[in-house]
Simulated scan of single mutants.
Amino acid sequence: MNLLPKNDWLDGEDLVGKLMNTFWEDRKMSVDIRDLDDHYEVKADLPGFEKSEISVHYNNDLLSIDAEHTTENEVKDDGRFVRRERSSSAYRRQFVVKDILAEQINAKFENGVLTLKLPKAPHEEKKGNSIAID
């Protein structure tokens, strides 16, 4: 009976933990960030969402993308039975992106993909301070 190596399928995690990690991994917002010469390009996959259900904020070097979607379906059958189904999805991703011209950020949403263009601020060489050693 050596079809499965002893306890290998539970090493480091229990079975429920593995299933839940896979469940949550499948339900996160996928995001790609490209560092281009003069800007960053962010693409977030949000299939099934409407533009009105998405919000984007940039404050104190923190880019936040939030999306929330709720649907309700009601099916009536011969007047005695009512089945009501609801589903809700909410996603939030945050990224630290420094030295951005916040007033020039551009966003568009097409075919379930949110695309953000974050223009880079001109690079300024910052001088460090000399620290005296006691």
Rank of each mutant, 00 (worst) to 15 (best):
S52K: 12
N73L: 09
K51M: 04
G17P: 02
R27V: 00
I65G: 08
D37V: 05
S30K: 14
M20R: 13
M29I: 07
V42W: 01
A44Y: 03
F49V: 02
R84V: 09
D66P: 02
K18D: 10
D35A: 14
D11T: 08
D37R: 15
T22I: 02
W24H: 13
R34E: 15
L19M: 09
S64V: 15
D35I: 01
S52W: 08
K76V: 07
D11M: 10
D45K: 14
D35E: 15
Y40P: 07
R34A: 14
E72Q: 07
G79Y: 01
E74S: 01
V75C: 02
L19H: 07
R80V: 01
D61C: 03
R27C: 00
M20A: 09
T70Y: 12
N7F: 08
L19T: 05
R84E: 15
A44P: 05
Y58L: 12
D11V: 12
L36A: 04
I33P: 03
E74D: 08
D78W: 01
L10A: 05
W24L: 00
D11Q: 14
E85D: 07
D8S: 14
L10N: 11
S52T: 14
L36S: 03
R84F: 04
E85A: 15
G79D: 07
K76P: 00
S52F: 00
I65P: 06
T70F: 14
R80E: 11
R83T: 09
I33C: 03
S64Y: 01
S30A: 14
R83L: 03
N21K: 11
M20L: 12
F49M: 05
N21W: 00
W24M: 11
E41N: 05
T70S: 06
S52N: 14
L63E: 08
S64D: 07
F23S: 13
G12D: 13
P47F: 07
R27Q: 13
H69K: 15
W9V: 03
T22S: 09
V82H: 10
K28A: 00
V42S: 11
L46K: 13
P47D: 10
D11F: 06
V31N: 06
R34Q: 15
E50T: 09
V75M: 09
D26Q: 15
G17F: 00
D8H: 09
H57L: 08
E74L: 04
E68Q: 09
V56E: 06
D45P: 00
F49Q: 06
D38A: 07
D77W: 07
K76I: 03
R83W: 01
D66Y: 10
R80S: 08
P47Y: 11
R27G: 00
T22R: 09
G12L: 12
R80D: 10
K6E: 13
S30C: 03
T70D: 07
H57N: 11
L62P: 01
E13Q: 13
